[in-house]
Nucleic acid binder design. Structure first.
Lengths: 159, 159
DNA sequence: CTCAATTAGTTTACACATCAACTATCGGCG
DNA sequence: CGCCGATAGTTGATGTGTAAACTAATTGAG
């Protein structure tokens, strides 16, 4: 247990400066690696991870949403949403129309085509979850979730 | 313990489809949030995280390195390295010169200016590690490291 | 009511990741 | 020797994230 695998992976000569650093690099690297697999899966369906996330949010909410709302629930910042919606609209997966109540806001709605695309991805996405983390026991998954939530707790809400 | 914080954060109506999914989203989200803080720190010194990583690799190795070697130790793929090195060279932090043995390869060397920049960042980086994960006990950090290594183990080497 | 502050969203500029295509060089085989 | 495949690196196109400046519309204080 003395030297972790990440240490060998990045071929560092000396040990990590601290356990915090080793844990932090492990989290970041694992997150990257996880995302890569989903990126590949989505690409087979001409989607990027960001686009998939937006579609999932729209389906989950089940109603037209403002750009601001969407931005709040993704990593993306408001300006990035514009181009994202542009491309989704061009692909026919969402529609955008000006709100009548407040003409500053544009409401984004997922189309039947978008819903069908998501439906076709549900099973592969679940299968990929199992493939990537299925070798951990339920107890280990719970431990991992608990530790990560505790890690984020001081800086996730107010920073 | 029943419902995790991430579930509330993303305001999902229903629980996660599986513990694998919840753990996966937790890893990805935590990794993103961690990176954001370092991005801000590096930006104060006119560096991006990718640029910082390349400089750290060069300092750690202590010798001129080929682009291929650098690419292997970062998330970046070879084509991305080109522009990265371009910008570092323009900033005077590295130099690039054609190898004499094999004129296909270009050797990248960190400059004294680059080393000085890194030296000034060492303490703030360590401090940020402590700030972000210092509230976890040593035992928790070790657990987290162990779980993440186990998570990656099936797909990190050969995939 | 009117004007200033606020808010939603877009545009622009830059850094980066990815893929495909290209150039230059090396190495080996005939 | 000369050509052909392999390799190192670059370039270009597309998508995304970030920040700053901008437009359009709403709100609120005087």
């Amino acid at each position: 247990m003395a030297e972790g695998k990440l240490q060998r992976e990045v071929k560092k000569k000396r040990p990590f400066d601290s356990a915090e650093q080793e844990a932090l690099l492990n989290v970041v690297r694992t997150g990257d690696r996880l995302q890569i697999h989903f990126t590949r899966l989505f690409r087979e369906h001409e989607l990027t991870p960001s686009q998939y996330n937006v579609l999932r949010i729209l389906r989950g909410e089940g109603r037209p949403m403002e750009c601001m709302e969407i931005a709040e629930r993704t990593v993306a910042v408001v300006p990035g949403i514009t181009g994202l919606i542009d491309r989704l609209e061009k692909a026919g997966l969402v529609t955008r129309q000006q709100s009548q109540e407040d003409r500053r806001v544009y409401l984004v709605t997922i189309t039947a085509c978008g819903l069908a695309l998501l439906a076709g991805l549900d099973e592969p996405v679940l299968a990929l979850h199992r493939k990537l983390l299925g070798h951990l026991t339920q107890s280990e998954l719970e431990q991992l979730i608990r530790l990560l939530e505790k890690a984020r707790s001081p800086w996730e809400d107010a920073d």
